[in-house]
Design a protein around this nucleic acid. Structure first.
Length: 253
DNA sequence: GATCCGTGGCA
DNA sequence: TTGCCAAGGAT
């Protein structure tokens, strides 16, 4: 849920989610339609399907216990470098570099003296953070959460609060005079008018309807017929929607 | 490595 | 208002 999504938006949904499906097997047993509705408007709904798939794998192959091994975690649907290591470090207290957008920014500034992080380079980023971790598992896990919090609360993207930063005296960026970032930026993702917006509109119709809907109901969600059809087809391909024998559309079972 | 995949808050 | 950004991952 936290992938590319602010903590404040995730928290209430996560709380309800965990009360409803407290174990992997409980989630795996739920219909996908229920999972997608509970996901609500968190965004990137394919994450909900992948989480559902991951729950099934954990239930069937890992004894209903989330694995602690990074390789086993990364093999799960929707679990990549960041999520696997976050589970290992924060769920199991292991020494494991955790690199998210916050940590990359902290390292770029405090270690490399740059104004911000460039494009992600997984291997190099992991090596940078690994070099900062103490040897003992428990100590390393504390440093890991500290790095993330520092980036989320103090060393923020727009207006870093260097005045209250605990590593200000050691920060290479401050030492260099806080130069502005000049490197390449991740291209700003357009949204208005894109397929992502259209898919979101269509899925919103299906989420809100507690019975299959006619095509006309989806037609009302977007005026450009060609784009609408293309997006509806992509939702079907992704398993985020299904078409019934009578031609109506619904969230997948 | 570049691109695609949602949504909403905030400056 | 518009642009930026948010505990990334898959292809």
């Amino acid at each position: 849920m936290l992938q590319q999504t602010p903590v404040a938006r995730v928290e209430p949904i996560w709380t309800e989610w965990m009360a409803r499906w407290p174990t992997p097997s409980a989630l795996a047993a739920a219909p996908r339609a229920d999972v997608l509705r509970a996901w609500g408007k968190l965004g990137y709904p394919r994450r909900a399907l992948r989480l559902h798939e991951a729950a099934a794998v954990i239930a069937e192959r890992h004894g209903d216990v989330v694995p602690s091994d990074v390789d086993a975690l990364e093999a799960l649907p929707g679990v990549g470098s960041y999520t696997a290591r976050a589970v290992a470090a924060f769920g199991y207290g292991l020494r494991c570099p955790v690199v998210d957008t916050n940590v990359r920014r902290v390292v770029a500034r405090a270690v490399h003296g740059a104004g911000d992080a460039g494009p992600a380079r997984v291997r190099a980023d992991l090596a940078d953070v690994d070099a900062l971790l103490p040897a003992a598992d428990a100590d390393a896990a504390v440093v890991s959460i500290g790095l993330m919090e520092l980036g989320a609360v103090v060393c923020t993207a727009r207006a870093p609060r260097c005045g209250i930063c605990p590593v200000r005296e050691e920060c290479a960026w401050v030492a260099a005079g806080s130069p502005q970032y000049t490197g390449p930026r991740r291209p700003v993702q357009a949204f208005a008018g894109t397929d992502r917006q259209v898919r979101g509109r269509l899925l919103d119709v299906l989420r809100g309807a507690h019975a299959p809907v006619e095509r006309a109901a989806l037609d009302a969600a977007w005026s450009d017929a060609a784009q609408r059809d293309r997006c509806l087809d992509s939702l079907l391909v992704d398993g985020l929607a299904e078409q019934l024998d009578d031609g109506r559309f619904a969230l997948p079972v």
